[in-house]
Design a binder for these strands. Structure first.
Lengths: 218, 218
DNA sequence: GTGCTATCGCAACTCTAGTTGCGTCACGGA
DNA sequence: TCCGTGACGCAACTAGAGTTGCGATAGCAC
C-alpha cells in the first residue's frame, strides 16, 4: 500500500482498465464509473447491472449507488457527457455540401452495432426517468442549430427557397437515420446522402433542376 | 382447509369482464394476458412487473411465466397482435391526398401519451430480445407497402416523378413523427401534413410548381 | 355421465438487485 | 508531517423477480 508518490496522474493514460488497484476517491471516481458505463452501454445496450459497472470501474457497487440513485440516472449522466463531444461544424463555400457532410457525420456515429445499442439504451433510460428523457432530447436533437445555421446560409445563397422549416427539414434527414439504427438496419453515409438529396429535390415531378445532379453526389 | 366446493377466490367475486371467478384455461387465457399487457404498456410503458400483468388478467403469475419466458417476449407478443390491427388504406382519386391521410392516421396513433409510452416499451423489449426487435421492425415499418402503393399510383398519375425511392420517401415522413413521439414531443396531424408537403416539394428554390398550393392543404 | 390429460393455482423456494451501518483510509489543509 | 473529514469498501440485510413441484380442475373424448 505504499506508492503514494508514484503515479499521481493515472488518468492521463486512459486505458480500458484502471491502471492501479489502489482505491480512488473524489470526482475522479465519477469519471471512471461513467467511462465504464459508456463501455457497457456500447457493448450490451441496457443489459448490464450496476454491479457490472462497479466491477469494470474497479469500485464497489455501493459507491456507484451512492452517486447515482438509479441505473437510468447513471446512463443519463454517461450520455450527458457523451453529448458534449461535438461534431465539427462543416463550413465550406457550399452550404449544400456542408449539409451532406453533417448528415454523413451523423450516419458515421450511428452506424455500427455500438451506435444502435447506445441509441436503444438511451431510450430505455429515458422511459424510466423523465430527467434522462430531457437529456435524450438534447442528444437526439443535437446538431439542430448547426443544421439550421447551414440551412440559413443556403437560403441566403439562393440555393434553398425561403420559408423552409429547418426543424422539419433536418428531422426528415436525421430521424430516418436514427430509426434505422434503432431497428438494427444498416446506416451508411450513402443513405445519408440520398436522404439529403431527396429532401432537397422533393418528390414532385416538376422541378426545373435535373434531380440527378442538382447537388454534389459523391 | 376444506373450502374445496366453495369460493376458492373471494376477491374474484367482483363481477368483471371475466364472466366468472372460475379459472380459465387454454388459448383464452393468452388473450386475457395480452390484453392486460397492452393496457399496462399503454399506461406505464415498461415500468410494470409480470405479477402486475397476472393481477390484471386475474391469473397466477406462474401461468404468465409458463407461456412467456421473459417480460420482453410477453410485450413482444402483445405488440405483435397489435400490429395486426390494420389502418384502413386510403384509396381516393387523389394519391397525394391519400398520402396525407395515411400520414395523419399514423400521427393519430402516435399522438397522446399512450402512443409514446407504447413506442418506448417496444424499443425496451426490443433491446432485450432480438426476436422482439424483428417484431418491432414489422410494427414500425408497417404501412410501408401501403405508402409505396400510394406512391406508385402518384407516379403513374404523373404527380410524382419516377425514380423516387418509396422507402426513403416514406421514412422522411413517418420517422420524424415516431421520433417526436419517442421524445415526448407533441405529434399532431398538422405536423404530418407539413412533413408530407415538405417531402413532396423539397427544399430547393427552383420548382415550377408554386409550393404553397401544389397539394391539398388543410 | 365418466374418465383422462393438459393446464392452472398455490406455496415455498432461489437468486439477484438494491439498501444500510460501520470501519477504514484517501485527500487536502495547517 | 500530522490531523480531521468525508468518501469508499465491506458484509449483512431486505425486497422482489423468477422457478419448481404438486395438487386440483377445466376441457374434451367417448
Amino acid at each position: 500500500m505504499a506508492a503514494r508518490s508514484a503515479d499521481q496522474n493515472p488518468e492521463a493514460s486512459v486505458r480500458e482498465v484502471r491502471p492501479s488497484n489502489r482505491p480512488v476517491r473524489g470526482p475522479r471516481v465519477v469519471d471512471t464509473v461513467l467511462d465504464a458505463t459508456l463501455a457497457l452501454v456500447a457493448e450490451r445496450s441496457y443489459s448490464f447491472s450496476i454491479e457490472d459497472v462497479a466491477r469494470l470501474a474497479r469500485v464497489h457497487k455501493t459507491t456507484v449507488y451512492r452517486r447515482f440513485a438509479t441505473k437510468a440516472a447513471l446512463v443519463g449522466a454517461a450520455i450527458e457527457r457523451m453529448a458534449l463531444t461535438q461534431i465539427p461544424v462543416p463550413e465550406s463555400a457550399d452550404p449544400l455540401a456542408d449539409l451532406v457532410a453533417l448528415a454523413e457525420a451523423v450516419a458515421r456515429v450511428l452506424s455500427g452495432p455500438d451506435g444502435a445499442r447506445t441509441m436503444r439504451a438511451v431510450l430505455v433510460a429515458a422511459s424510466e426517468d423523465s430527467d434522462v428523457l430531457a437529456t435524450a432530447r438534447r442528444l437526439l436533437t443535437g446538431r439542430f442549430d448547426t443544421a439550421a445555421q447551414i440551412l440559413s446560409r443556403a437560403i441566403a445563397s439562393g440555393q434553398v427557397r425561403a420559408g423552409v422549416d429547418p426543424v422539419l427539414f433536418w428531422a426528415g434527414i436525421v430521424n430516418p437515420l436514427q430509426v434505422r439504427a434503432l431497428l438494427g438496419h444498416p446506416v451508411s453515409e450513402a443513405t445519408a446522402r440520398e436522404l439529403v438529396a431527396l429532401s432537397l429535390d422533393g418528390a414532385h415531378r416538376a422541378t426545373s433542376i435535373d434531380p440527378t445532379d442538382s447537388w454534389p453526389t459523391a
